[in-house]
């Protein structure tokens, strides 16, 4: 039988974590495990602290509490640029429950919101106050100790940030892949682009070869050609019931092209 331990603060909860514990976000993944007899954990740790759910501006960056839900992100004015991403996670009931913190740990094919955070160079703050770039966090998340307190991002300008979720069922459906791009421009040319793919590896991953190929180019069919040809370098998609790894690799450049050029309907 499971034990549930409830604490007032995140620091207390972090102190109580053992290898047999799971920290409860919205529970959409954990409770599935509970209902289906997952024996890999015996304890659920949770906090009452409502401040974990706060979304606020702090010295030029937007800080999103790990306990904020997709619905919270859609409602907050600070995160208006992420509302369209949050809206594409599950149906309305899932969005009222699913947290940003839980999305950071969601296994393939989940993690659509995290894919957007990766493209935006988010920073992840842990319960001990330390911060790390989201890319480092993702590569080490399976062995992470401590809990996530919040993530922060800077607000992208105008149409610099774009997101697309490719799924087979509309409006709700799990990702064949999701793609997030951040395309800062200098004098019309792309500088320091970020491209992140979800459901194309064990965690959301950056397509670094494609990012580099976009450096200094114009955002048009000719400018992005080289980036498309290396779109899947470094990605490691898997087979699942929605699509094979082969299919994912084949269609990734097609969808990336549409995102970059703003083409096609979702």
């Amino acid at each position: 039988m499971l034990t549930v331990e409830t604490f007032d603060t995140l620091a207390q909860a972090a102190g109580a974590m053992t290898p047999e514990s799971r920290f409860l976000g919205g529970g959409t993944l954990i409770m599935r495990g509970v209902n289906y007899g997952d024996q890999s954990f015996q304890r659920i740790v949770r906090v009452r602290d409502r401040s974990l759910r706060e979304i606020r501006s702090e010295s030029g960056r937007i800080v999103i509490g790990a306990g904020a839900t997709m619905a919270d992100v859609m409602a907050a004015s600070e995160t208006s640029f992420l509302a369209d991403v949050a809206r594409q996670v599950g149906g309305p009931a899932v969005r009222n429950m699913a947290t940003i913190g839980g999305n950071l740990f969601a296994p393939h094919p989940y993690g659509d919101f995290t894919t957007a955070l990766l493209a935006l160079d988010a920073s992840v703050r842990l319960s001990d106050g330390s911060e790390q770039p989201i890319e480092n966090f993702l590569s080490a998340r399976s062995s992470m100790r401590g809990l996530v307190a919040s993530v922060s991002v800077s607000r992208p300008m105008g149409d610099e940030f774009r997101f697309r979720k490719v799924s087979r069922v509309k409006p709700k459906g799990v990702s064949v892949m999701s793609i997030a791009v951040w395309l800062p421009r200098q004098g019309g040319r792309i500088s320091q682009a970020r491209i992140a793919f979800g459901a194309m590896g064990p965690t959301p991953l950056r397509a670094k070869a494609a990012e580099q190929a976009l450096e200094g180019v114009n955002l048009d069919a000719q400018g992005i050609e080289q980036a498309l040809s290396v779109a899947t370098a470094g990605l490691s998609p898997m087979d699942d019931s929605l699509a094979s790894a082969w299919y994912r690799n084949e269609v990734a450049p097609v969808h990336l092209r549409r995102v970059l050029l703003g083409e096609g309907n979702r």
Binding site: V4, G27, M31
Partner: peptide
């Protein structure tokens, strides 16, 4: 607000 009761830990 709509929630999935099967995935809601009762004591929350």
């Amino acid at each position: 607000e709509p929630h999935l009761s099967c995935l809601t830990l009762a004591e929350t």
